[in-house]
């Protein structure tokens, strides 16, 4: 009986600790809200403006391009925001500020500390996705929207944010602090441009090698999934396939990131 009570107490303790750490992250983000918003908005704003607005008004792209671009940029924002929300802080916290130590010594399992990081990063990415709606309307005048596909959109955004957070966890735990700058350029640029955010994946069939490469970028399935939800008339990968691919990516990257986190947290 007493053993059960102790175990229960441990679980409540861990739940308390988990929520307190999450509250700390939300509190800090709340205080740095303008910086967070600027970080989230600026990149998609420029991408939408140049590719969606300028190129179409100059006649280099058709009007329809705006519609397939918007879901792509939303996908890019979700994934990149999630990666950034976890990778860079984690490198700093394990590397030089050591801020994470106080949380690693809180009464909860090490895995739970990593899960908190994932959830927090995913939350930031979901907020970023939401902000994309007014930004899109502002820059493009209108955005493609279908309420009947809203559930698919929500599922893809949530899965995409978790996959992005897992990529961030892998980068943040396997990369040496001194290498972080190199890794950011070597990982980020390919990630940005092979994620099918600026083009629909099925139309790459004439460029087979590039199509194969992009199929390995999980962001592709976020872009395509959002196109399936918002602009089904554009060629796209089926929504269910996208959801399945994202679940597979999460099942692969999540554990790799968790193992990396454990290796950094416990000697």
């Amino acid at each position: 009986m007493s053993a059960i009570t102790a175990e229960d107490a441990g679980r409540t303790g861990a739940a308390h600790a988990f929520l307190a750490v999450l509250r700390r992250d939300l509190y800090v983000t709340g205080r740095e809200l303008p910086a967070f918003l600027a970080q989230v908005i600026l990149q998609p704003l420029f991408l939408l403006f140049v590719f969606g607005k300028i190129l179409t008004s100059l006649g280099y792209a058709t009007n329809g391009y705006k519609d397939l671009l918007f879901p792509g940029i939303m996908a890019l924002t979700v994934v990149i925001t999630a990666v950034q929300a976890i990778a860079f802080p984690l490198v700093a916290e394990f590397g030089w500020t050591r801020e994470i130590e106080d949380r690693l010594l809180a009464p909860m399992s090490t895995a739970l500390v990593a899960i908190e990081k994932l959830i927090f990063a995913a939350l930031r990415a979901i907020v970023a996705a939401t902000i994309m709606v007014p930004v899109g309307i502002l820059v493009l005048g209108s955005i493609p929207w279908r309420w009947q596909a809203f559930p698919l959109l929500v599922v893809v955004v949530i899965l995409g944010s978790l996959v992005g957070a897992s990529i961030g966890l892998v980068i943040g735990t396997y990369v040496q602090p001194s290498r972080i700058n190199i890794v950011f350029s070597l990982v980020f640029t390919p990630l940005l441009f092979t994620g099918s955010s600026q083009y629909p994946w099925p139309t790459l069939s004439d460029l087979r090698w590039f199509q194969v490469i992009t199929a390995f970028n999980p962001m592709t399935y976020v872009s395509e999934g959002l196109r399936a939800a918002l602009v089904p008339s554009v060629p796209h990968i089926d929504g269910l396939i996208c959801v399945g691919a994202l679940i597979v990516a999460l099942a692969l990257l999540g554990p790799i990131g968790m193992i990396g986190f454990r290796r950094r947290a416990i000697d």
């Binding site: 700390r24 800090v28 205080r31 740095e32 500020t97 050591r98 801020e99 130590e101 106080d102 010594l105």
Partner: peptide, 13 residues
């Protein structure tokens, strides 16, 4: 509780 040699205080707080 642990008091490390080098500061690991939360700089955001």
């Amino acid at each position: 509780a642990v008091v490390p040699q080098r500061s690991n205080l939360d700089r955001s707080l």
